[in-house]
Structures are given as structure tokens and as C-alpha cells.
Design a protein around this nucleic acid. Structure first.
Length: 651
DNA sequence: ATAGGGTTAG
């Protein structure tokens, strides 16, 4: 028998609901419940289900269950309320049990279909494959597959299991597909990396909506097909903030941070309000570019719009941005300001931020705070820590961290973690040990592991080890120009000119292009970009070139000797010195010397690793011209002051 | 009741 609502006047029901909606604490909730029992409102289906769902929302799942048990003959809708709560809770298994229990209690299955999406979601969430198949079986028997809500949920569940072929079968069998069915299949294929199949469905589907477009943009972006993402982006005239965010992150994933930033600006111009995810992705682009002014603007925007820093990634994105723009104090400031509501990402960003500045000891201190506060570190925390030790030359501490992560935190190291350890040992000159780790680790060595050995070999002048490492790295990443260049440098240094020529022609044959060096500098709020021997704003090229000449001759007085050992690939002997002096970071530095006042610090961002000559050049400039110079290269920060660099030659 | 976007990583 259905609980009667006729016994309760409508007024009372509405009153109870209003009370529930205003309710702020469990104590209040209990009072309302008591009143509802007194007036027999608990017998009213609608009021009772509201009560159950409010219990769930305020975190009192237990209370919800006890309320539920006092309801006589709960109807499918009340079951549904609690099932949904269980699905969203940390214990979705309960949702499946309650569903099974409901089936044994109900005589009439009318209304059961409302619970099916929740139950299927619960199965997917806890990867309960067998249970999921059982529910699927029941759905087939009871013909609920006719209900697109139900069928779509079955599809979603199989996708959650990673079984696209099962999902596809349901998709093919279901009597009536709606736009959600198509979109679900498309995202399923995209998650598998099967863009062609996804695109096939996208082209074939009868009526696309925004979700379809956004999913394709996102999918293309993630698999490195930026042009195709752009194509889809251009196909739809209606765009929402997610469309823009998808395109921004597509640019980001494909290493076009400038385009990502431009896209964000365009979005703002059209009056679209960025939300947290949009801001997080643009912050990441800004961090890549090192555009501190834009970063500060976004920070101010977040503050004025009162966007929460605690949940989500806003805090970590801000910390990361400030650290990568060289403003560690601001990163720390954000980090401190969220001290009571930090998530793991906030800690990780702070630790990695300190790592790129070479502040290994501080990073370890932050980690100790984390341990004191019982925050469970994850694998990224340890990548940051190992990197911090590596850049800070802290060999023992790094090895200790590596042990700690396995023994105390039971984290199984990935190939990246081994890469860090190899790098750590290699940099510190323990080349044999580094090779030992590489040979004994439970993974095939990847490019980065070999590149770590390669740069350690070069630094510690072991040509044979370097040659071997370079050859292995080239095998694994034939498109990466840096390994060819380093190898040919090794050959050149040994006078093996035939081999130098061989490498050069190999590069030509494989059309491996060198990535052009590029540096940027911020002067009076404007970013200026320099390539080798050329300013993007060509008006100032000549002025910069003559300034470099001045600086070089002044430094030569102080004992500067151009280090020609790294310009061995393409150039004749007499061209080497002038080519060296045209490196983009020297151009940017000269521009900074011309256009900033005496004693003002200079910040430069470079896309590649800084070369040895530029490094000693800038050290000297910092002393002779009495300037603090901060350079971010591909790997880390260099803080130059009074002739010294913070990296202590660890780079 | 079912589908879409986000950070930190050698």
C-alpha cells in the first residue's frame, strides 16, 4: 500500500519542506524529524524522501538510513533517494545492496527504473563488473533498455570498466539513441585514444550539441591533434566556457602556451566569464610563458570574483604560476594563505616550485611539515622532492626519499622516479652508480633516463659513456634534436670529424630540425621576445647587437673567454664566436641592460637549456654590471648575483 | 535519473 498523503494537509507538507531547506545542522534536522513523526508527516512519500535526502546532504548517512528504516513500505522513489545518496557516498557498494533489497520487497516494479542509473553508476565506480552484468541482464529481461536513461547508464558503466566493446554493443542494440548516447560513445572512444572511431560517430550522429563539439575538441587536444581541435572549434558558433577551456587546454597540451593565452583573451573580449577550470588552464599557460603581469592579473581576478582557492586546483595553479615566473615569495604567500585548507596539489606545487629554484633543503622542510600534519604524499610529491634533491646536489637526502616513498608510503616507483635517481647520481658525478640503477630498474630505460646519463657523462667528461647514452637516446627519440647535437659535440671534442659529419647528415636525412632558441624579457610591463641574433620587434635589433659588442669587450677585460666547445655543429671556426654572442638569452640580457635602470633586477625566460657560455657570461655580467639576473631555462631557475649562480653548476 | 572542460611531474 502506498503511504497516504491525504492524511497530511498540503500546508503541513510545504511547511516541513521549507523547514528542511533552511535547516543548517543535524540537531535542527532531528527536531524537524521529531515534528514530522508527531504530525505523521513521515507517512507522506514526498516529505519523507526529502527528509532522507537532506540527511544524506548534511553528511548524516547513518541518520538517513535510520529514518529510512522507520518508513513503512517505502515506495521506489524513497528507495531511489537513498540509493542515489549511497552511490555518491564513499561506499557505493551499499547502493547495490539496497537495490537488491528493494527488488525483494517490492511487488510492483513500477518506478524501479529511476534507481537503475544510480546503481549502474555505483557498479562503475567500484568496478563491480559481475554485479553490473547482473543488473544489465535484468534490464534486458525487463525491457528497460527502451528507456534511454537506463541504456545510457549501462553504456557509461561499461566505459567506466574500460570495456568499450561492451558499451558499443549496448549502443548498437538500444532501440532509441539520443544525443547523450552518441556523446557517451564518443567520449568513450576518445578516452581510449581512438580518435578515428570517435570522429566517425561525430560525423555520423544526427544532431550534435555543445557537448559533442567540446568532447571532440578535448579529445583532439589530448592526442596531439591541435589543428583538428581548431577545426572542430571553428565548426560551432555557439560556444560555452567549456568549449573555450577545451581549446585553451588543447593549445596547452600541444605546447602552444601563447595561443592558449590569446584564446583566453579572446574569450574575455566576447564577455564570457571564466570559471575555475578556465582560470586554471590559463594560469598554466601563463606559467609556461613566465608572464608574471598576466599572472598577477588573474590572481586579482580570482580575488575580486571571490573564486575559492581551497577546493579544486586554483591554489596549486597560482603557486605553480608564481614559482615558474620566478616570484617564489608570492608562491609562498599563496601557499601560506591557504594553510588550513590545502590539498595535495597545493603541497606538490610548492615542493616542485622550490625544486626548480634549486632550494632542495627548503623543499625537504615543506615535506616535513606535510608529514607532521599527516598529509599523505603521492607519487608526484616524490617526483618533486627527488627533483629538488637533484637540483640541490643533495645526494643522500634524495636516496633517503626514494627509500621512504617505498617503505613508509608504499608507493611503487615509476620509471620517472628512477629517472630522477639516475639524474641525481649522475649530476653528482656518481656515473657508475647511475648506470647501475638504470640497468637494474624494473623498467626499460626511457629517453629521459638515457639523457640523464648523457648529460652526466658530458659534465664529468666520460666520452665513451656519453656516446653510448646518446646513441640509445637517439634510438628512443629520433625526433629529438638535442641528443644529436650533444653527440656531435662529444665527437668534435675528440676530433672525430667524420663522425660529426655522419651525425649531421643523419639529422638532415631524418629532417630533425633544431628547435630555435628563444628568450623573453619583461620590461615596463611589456614582454619582448628574442631569437638568435634577432629581436621579434626588429626596430631594436641593431641597438641590442651593438650593446652585446660593448658588453663582450668589457667582459673580456675581466677575463671572459668565449667557450666555443658547444658550437661545433654547423659553423666554421671563425663564425663560432659571433654566433655564440647572438644567443637569444644574451640578446634579451642586453636589451634589459639598455632599458632598465641601474641596479634593477632582470628576469629572462628561455625555452631551451641555457648553454655553458651564456651561463658564465651572465655570471660575469651580474658582477660587472652589479645586477641581479634571474633566468628560467627549460629545466630550472638560475639566480645570478655578484658573479655566482644559485644552481652551483647543478643543471 | 544518463553525457562535456582544470593543476602539480625527471
Amino acid at each position: 500500500m502506498e503511504a497516504t498523503s491525504s492524511s497530511c494537509p498540503v500546508m503541513l507538507v510545504t511547511q516541513a519542506i521549507t523547514n528542511l531547506e533552511k535547516c543548517k545542522s543535524m540537531t535542527e534536522l532531528r527536531q524537524i524529524h521529531a515534528l514530522m513523526i508527531k504530525t505523521n508527516l513521515v507517512a507522506n512519500t514526498f516529505a519523507a524522501s526529502k527528509l532522507v535526502s537532506f540527511c544524506c546532504l548534511s553528511g548524516g548517512l547513518d541518520h538517513a538510513v535510520s529514518v529510512f528504516h522507520r518508513i513503512q513500505n517505502p515506495n521506489p522513489f524513497i528507495y531511489f533517494t537513498l540509493i542515489k545518496c549511497f552511490t555518491d557516498s564513499s561506499n557505493p557498494l551499499e547502493s547495490i545492496s539496497l537495490y537488491a533489497h528493494m527488488l525483494t520487497c517490492l511487488e510492483d516494479w513500477k518506478g524501479v527504473e529511476f534507481s537503475l542509473p544510480s546503481v549502474l553508476k555505483a557498479c562503475g565506480k567500484i568496478k563491480a563488473f559481475d554485479e553490473g552484468q547482473q543488473v544489465h541482464g535484468q534490464i534486458l529481461k525487463t525491457h528497460f533498455l527502451f528507456d534511454p536513461f537506463v541504456a545510457n547508464s549501462v553504456i557509461r558503466m561499461y566505459l567506466e570498466f574500460g570495456r568499450v566493446e561492451f558499451a558499443r554493443q549496448v549502443f548498437d542494440e538500444m532501440p532509441e539513441r539520443d544525443v547523450i548516447s552518441w556523446n557517451s560513445m564518443i567520449t568513450g572512444y576518445l578516452r581510449e585514444g581512438d580518435v578515428e572511431l570517435a570522429r566517425g560517430l561525430f560525423d555520423e550522429m544526427p544532431g550534435r550539441d555543445l557537448v559533442s563539439y567540446n568532447a571532440m575538441i578535448d579529445g583532439y587536444g589530448k592526442c596531439g591533434k591541435c589543428e583538428l581541435a581548431e577545426e572542430i572549434f571553428g565548426m560551432t558558433s555557439q560556444k560555452d566556457v567549456k568549449t573555450w577551456t577545451s581549446m585553451i587546454s588543447a593549445y596547452l597540451h600541444n605546447h602552444y602556451p601563447k595561443k592558449a593565452l590569446d584564446m583566453f583573451r579572446e574569450m574575455l573580449c566576447l564577455g564570457i566569464q571564466p570559471d575555475a577550470p578556465a582560470l586554471v588552464s590559463v594560469l598554466s599557460a601563463i606559467a609556461d610563458l613566465g608572464f608574471i603581469e598576466e599572472g598577477k592579473w588573474i590572481h586579482a581576478y580570482i580575488s575580486t570574483k571571490k573564486i575559492k582557492m581551497s577546493n579544486g586546483f586554483i591554489g596549486s595553479a597560482l603557486i605553480d604560476m608564481y614559482a615558474k615566473c620566478g616570484h617564489l615569495e608570492n608562491a609562498f604567500h599563496v601557499f601560506r594563505s591557504i594553510s588550513h585548507k590545502r590539498n595535495i596539489g597545493d603541497w606538490n606545487s610548492m615542493i616542485s616550485g622550490l625544486a626548480i629554484h634549486g632550494l632542495g633543503t627548503v623543499a625537504l622542510e615543506v615535506f616535513h611539515d606535510m608529514e607532521r600534519m599527516d598529509i599523505e604524499p603521492d607519487e608526484i610529491t616524490f617526483l618533486g622532492l627527488l627533483g629538488a634533491c637533484s637540483h640541490g646536489g643533495l645526494v643522500d637526502e634524495g636516496q633517503h626519499c626514494f627509500k621512504l616513498m617505498q617503505e613508509k608510503y608504499k608507493i611503487v616507483p615509476k620509471v620517472q622516479h628512477y629517472g630522477c635517481i639516475i639524474d641525481l647520481l649522475g649530476r653528482a658525478g656518481h656515473l657508475e652508480d647511475a648506470l647501475g640503477v638504470l640497468q637494474n630498474m624494473p623498467f626499460e630505460a626511457d629517453v629521459l633516463a638515457w639523457k640523464a646519463i648523457l648529460s652526466a657523462s658530458i659534465k664529468h667528461e666520460n666520452a665513451a659513456a656519453g656516446e653510448n647514452a646518446a646513441l640509445r637516446a637517439i634510438e628512443l627519440a629520433p625526433e629529438d634534436s638535442s641528443c644529436y647535437v650533444l653527440l656531435s659535440n662529444i665527437y668534435a671534442k675528440a676530433g672525430r670529424w667524420d663522425d660529426v659529419a655522419k651525425i649531421r647528415s643523419m639529422m638532415k636525412q631524418r629532417t630533425v630540425g633544431k628547435i630555435p632558441g628563444c628568450s623573453s624579457i619583461l620590461v615596463k610591463g611589456k614582454v619582448h621576445i628574442f631569437l638568435v641574433g634577432k629581436a621579434m620587434d626588429e626596430n631594436c635589433t641593431d641597438e641590442v647587437l651593438s650593446k652585446i659588442k660593448d658588453v663582450v669587450s668589457r667582459l673580456k677585460f675581466e677575463g671572459y673567454e668565449p667557450d666555443l666547445t658547444q658550437v661545433l655543429l654547423d659553423v666554421e671556426e671563425e663564425g663560432k664566436e659571433s654566433l655564440l654572442s647572438l644567443h637569444s638569452e644574451k640578446m634579451a640580457l642586453a636589451f634589459g641592460l639598455i632599458n632598465t635602470s641601474h641596479g634593477a633586477p632582470i628576469h629572462i625566460v628561455k625555452n631551451l637549456r641555457i648553454c655553458r657560455d651564456c651561463h658564465s657570461f651572465i655570471k660575469l655580467v651580474s658582477r660587472v654590471y652589479n645586477r641581479r639576473i634571474v633566468v628560467r631555462d627549460q629545466n630550472r631557475f638560475h639566480h645570478f648575483e655578484n658573479g655566482f649562480c644559485s644552481c652551483k653548476e647543478y643543471w
